[in-house]
């Protein structure tokens, strides 16, 4: 499916390239791509419309739209709109679209020209050594951190950089933290209840009444996460692995389109790890999932496409065997 997008995108891609702000485009380095599926873009970007009007004209020609007015400002606006539309086409079919994202903390580049595309219904594993920028990437997607530059789009055309955590969560992006965070002084059931998709207003919560539909949803999620037995227990009394599942259950309750799962099996027993892999595969049948994980056997068990991050950008992408055979990946993991 992802492959199909790429081929579809090609023509518009060039148009888009013309109208993108110069800086962003030029920073784009052609990505090393084992599978050869990433976007290949002209290495030297054409200049902006102002400095190269004839080219712009030529590119605009195929799109039939009357030029409203020769006024430079109107022309510029129109070009911007067209460019926006064009880039929208490019990512229309993606669920998560990161392009040229940069973020640095006090001079340290945590994310460096990161580009990543996740298609609808795809499950993706992200690996990478410590400090590769995995958690910062999650922070950027979920609105906790604002990138210095670059594009982050959800569902094709929702610019995530303009929204905060709560808004992004409500759009359908769920996030599980590295360290399991559940509401320890609430019961398992209440944890799920608080996470259930629905209105998020304070007054609604004050006058909220439990109903059968809600109970059914909770039952179903508890069943999926194997926590039915524990529903009346305080979350604080759960084991580490059970807390991880509860957190995944809370994500499911949100009914998200995209789940970001940060190291779901850290500190789990082998049996629990296996169970978690099964759980994630089950979830991935209906939703997109991005899993950040160190545990290679777990990633193997997931059996999905793998992206390896290093120093804030993508080092390699493809099936696990291919990625792990990549000399650059080996170098990064084993040292030089």
């Amino acid at each position: 499916m992802a492959e199909a997008d790429v081929t579809n995108r090609k023509p518009q891609d060039e148009v888009q390239a013309l109208f993108e702000p110069q800086g962003v485009r030029e920073e784009q380095t052609p990505r090393t791509d084992a599978e050869g599926h990433g976007e290949r873009r002209p290495a030297a970007a054409p200049a902006s419309p102002e400095s190269a009007p004839p080219q712009a004209e030529a590119a605009l020609a195929p799109i039939e739209e009357p030029v409203v007015s020769p006024h430079p400002y109107a022309t510029k606006l129109r070009e911007q709109r067209l460019a926006k539309e064009a880039s929208g086409h490019a990512r229309r079919d993606t669920l998560l679209y990161l392009d040229g994202v940069n973020k640095s903390f006090d001079g340290f580049k945590a994310i460096n020209k990161l580009s990543l595309v996740v298609a609808r219904g795809e499950m993706r594993a992200i690996i990478g050594p410590n400090g590769a920028g995995k958690t910062t990437m999650m922070d950027i997607i979920t609105g906790k951190t604002r990138p210095d530059s670059g594009e982050v789009f959800f569902n094709g055309d929702v610019d995530l950089t303009h929204h905060d955590e709560a808004a992004i969560a409500s759009m359908g992006i769920g996030r599980k933290f590295q360290k399991p965070t559940v509401f320890e002084s609430h019961t398992v059931e209440d944890n799920i209840r608080l996470s259930l998709a629905g209105p998020r207003s304070v007054l609604e919560a004050l006058f909220h009444r439990k109903d059968q539909a809600e109970r059914d949803r909770i039952d179903a999620i508890l069943e999926t996460t194997r926590l039915t037995e524990k529903r009346k227990l305080l979350a604080a009394s759960l084991s580490h692995g059970q807390k991880q599942w509860l957190e995944i259950g809370m994500l499911l309750a949100q009914d998200p389109e995209l789940l970001l799962v940060d190291e779901p099996v850290a500190g789990m027993t082998d049996a629990e790890t296996e169970e978690t892999a099964r759980l994630l595969r089950e979830i991935a049948r209906t939703r997109s999932v991005v899993v950040v994980e160190h545990d290679m056997s777990f990633v193997r068990e997931l059996g999905v496409k793998v992206t390896c991050l290093h120093e804030g950008s993508v080092l390699a992408e493809g099936p696990l065997d291919q990625v792990s055979a990549d000399p650059k990946v080996i170098e990064v993991y084993l040292g030089r």
């Binding site: 955590e165 709560a166 969560a169 769920g174 933290f177 965070t181 608080l194 996470s195």
Partner: peptide, 22 residues
């Protein structure tokens, strides 16, 4: 009420409530 549960949730894990949309 559910709001009360949410309050305690905010007390114990504020960022968690944020990431589930509150």
């Amino acid at each position: 009420s559910k709001l009360g549960k949410l309050m305690v949730a905010v007390r114990d894990a504020e960022s968690r409530t944020r990431f589930i949309g509150w």
